[in-house]
């Protein structure tokens, strides 16, 4: 099993970055950092577009981020209908790394605000599927 385990519906069967899913199993959200030029990437990538290196290491997204923007979807694309409504957001962390994902649905909608402190959490979707979400810090 590899990358097809990622997300509510997966559209990609394989990636060289599939170790990402293994890290989620231990509740770690990881990006990659280029060993040659130091560029950091989230989502992770296995090729550096700045120096063309393929020597990458993993780093963990940690600490508190701030919610940059969000939306609550009242309709969904095919395959996600049963999830409605759900909130999507982008959070920015101290090192400038931005993370896009779902926002914890237990947060009351009126409490979700741009600028609120967020952290990330791995989510076990069952049947071997994993994802991550943004939760209040």
């Amino acid at each position: 099993m590899g990358f097809e385990q990622f997300g509510i519906v997966s559209f990609t069967s394989a990636t060289k970055a599939e170790q990402f899913v293994e890290f989620l199993k231990s509740n770690e959200l990881r990006g990659t950092v280029c060993l040659d030029c130091g560029a950091k990437f989230f989502p992770p990538r296995t090729d550096c577009c700045y120096c063309l290196s393929d020597r990458m290491d993993w780093f963990t997204i940690s600490g508190e981020g701030r919610l940059v923007s969000f939306t609550t979807a009242m309709f969904a694309p095919a395959g996600f209908e049963k999830d409605v409504p759900y909130t999507l957001g982008v959070a920015e962390f101290a090192d400038g790394t931005k993370v896009f994902g779902r926002v914890d649905r237990s947060i009351p909608q009126e409490q979700i605000k741009v600028g609120m402190a967020m952290k990330t959490r791995a989510v076990d979707l069952g049947e071997g599927r994993l994802t991550y979400e943004l939760v209040a810090a």
């Binding site: 559209f11 990609t12 979807a73 694309p77 095919a78 996600f80 999507l88 994802t131």
Partner: peptide, 29 residues
Amino acid sequence: AESQERMGRGADIQWEAPFGTMMPAYYAM
């Protein structure tokens, strides 16, 4: 709904579409 799914796949299918993305949600952000 299929059309929203197609348009959602007009974004990053590896890292974003698995969350249930669609054009209105992106522009809403």
